[in-house]
Amino acid sequence: MTTTRTRYLIRPLPAPLLAGVRRSGLDAAGQPVERRRAEGGEPLRCCLRDATPGEPLLLFGYAPPIPPGPYRELGPVFAHDADCPGPAAPGGYPADWRGRPQVLRAYDGAGRIVGGRQHDGDDPEAVLAELLADPVVAQLHSRNVVYGCFMFAVVRA
């Protein structure tokens, strides 16, 4: 996605990581994944949309992509139980999540939090560009406001 000054990409969970989780049945902590049917509305980190009722899902622990250190967390995420085509608009802000309040955490190259901001979801591109304008910021993580769960990563293009 392009703004007037900053080019960036929205990244879902990496396909190779998802394939490994599906194959092994284990999450980032070595714990068994939970297989379940969607109630509807679960945020899918593989295709960056909300689940529809009845879809087969995995719920598992995921460690977002930052170097090991005190700011690296392990938290719950939902993904399809089988391969999916990924986001409808690869690299762009998820259409299903536009208008949804989110927290953006900014990380430096060492994986330390160097800023962040809550936004209402109405103009997420402006907030992403603003945070990425700081040259110290290596990546952003979007997080659910209520639960704090990782939603997706944002990196410079």
Rank of each mutant, 00 (worst) to 15 (best):
T2C: 14
T3K: 03
T4Q: 14
T6L: 14
P14M: 15
A15E: 13
L17H: 13
A19V: 11
V21L: 05
R23W: 09
S24G: 05
G25H: 06
L26R: 10
L26F: 07
A28S: 09
A29S: 12
G30Y: 05
P32R: 01
E34T: 15
E34W: 12
R36H: 12
E39N: 12
C46Q: 02
C46T: 04
D50L: 15
L58N: 00
G61L: 14
Y62V: 07
Y62E: 05
I66Q: 00
G69F: 00
G69Q: 01
P70V: 13
E73N: 11
P76E: 08
V77L: 05
H80Q: 09
D81F: 08
P85Y: 02
G86S: 06
P87E: 01
P87Y: 01
A89C: 15
G92C: 12
Y93L: 10
Y93R: 06
Y93K: 03
Y93V: 11
A95P: 08
A95M: 10
R100I: 12
P101E: 04
Q102S: 11
R105Q: 13
R105P: 03
G116V: 06
H119T: 07
D120N: 10
G121Y: 06
D122S: 15
E125L: 10
A129C: 09
A129I: 06
V136E: 11
V137F: 02
V137M: 02
V137C: 04
Q139K: 14
L140Q: 01
N144R: 09
N144L: 11
M151A: 15
V155E: 11
V155S: 09
